[in-house]
Design a protein around this nucleic acid. Structure first.
Length: 228
DNA sequence: GCGACAG
DNA sequence: ATCTTGTCGC
């Protein structure tokens, strides 16, 4: 009999344990409309260094005018492998740590990854939302699972993303002619309000503005860890 | 057995 | 995600 290898990065959980935990936590996720009115929206993204470290960035924007309010980040070693379906165990800890560096308390958190559109209905956005007990929305650049009808080529076109018969998100064409993005609710959010929020965050590019800023910031910090 | 597979 | 140059097109 071989004991699970928890050395080299000492993951706190084995993949099998993580999957069991997801099945349990998925039952605590709440599906409901996002708050009708709120003032602060947070968005986050991460970048990875050759040193096996990662940088998690969280930015906040005023809502609904979308003016940048704050930027914070944390740098730490990567302690969980990338396994499709288990992304949150790799990124959520750093994201919540960065979140706690904020001075303002966000009302909604936009995450770079899936929410409900996950094999066990527990994507990154759900995990982060549960850990922080805040409404979250998942917005991914690629599909993880689920099927959908073709999406119109025009900006604003959408198709329901379904998994095992039930709706888990939307495939949304944020700009004419570009690849669509995948929007799904995290915690304390639902399909319609999640897509509505993302729509309002899209400006000139395919990626919603808050996520673009978080992504660009994470990239710059990776190339130049000196400057904020 | 053969693909698919968030970041 | 990250390693990497130029290239095609609006």
């Amino acid at each position: 009999m071989t004991a699970p290898d928890r050395s080299m990065g000492s993951p706190s959980l084995t993949p099998a344990e993580a999957i069991a935990l997801q099945k349990e936590l998925a039952g605590r996720v709440e599906l409901r409309p996002l708050p009708a009115r709120f003032h602060v929206l947070a968005a986050a993204d991460l970048s990875y260094l050759p040193s096996r470290e990662l940088i998690a960035v969280v930015v906040t924007f005023s809502w609904p005018d979308l003016q940048l309010l704050e930027k914070v980040h944390v740098r730490r070693p990567v302690e969980f492998p990338y396994v499709p379906g288990l992304l949150s165990f790799r990124e959520a800890p750093a994201l919540t740590a960065a979140f706690h560096q904020l001075e303002l308390r966000p009302d909604v958190f936009l995450c770079d990854g899936q929410g409900l559109a996950h094999p066990r209905r527990f994507g990154l956005a759900c995990h982060v939302g549960l850990l922080l007990d805040i409404p979250t929305v998942g917005c991914a650049k690629k599909r993880l699972c689920g099927t959908h009808d073709p999406v119109g080529i025009e900006k604003g076109s959408r198709s329901l993303l379904s998994l095992d018969g039930d709706p888990v998100g939307y495939v949304y064409r944020s700009r004419t002619g570009v690849k669509p993005i995948y929007v799904s609710p995290g915690h304390k959010a639902d399909l319609e309000s999640s897509l509505a929020l993302v729509e309002r965050c899209v400006r000139r590019y395919r990626i919603p503005e808050p996520l673009r800023v978080a992504h660009n910031t994470a990239t710059l910090l990776r190339r130049n860890p000196e400057f904020p």
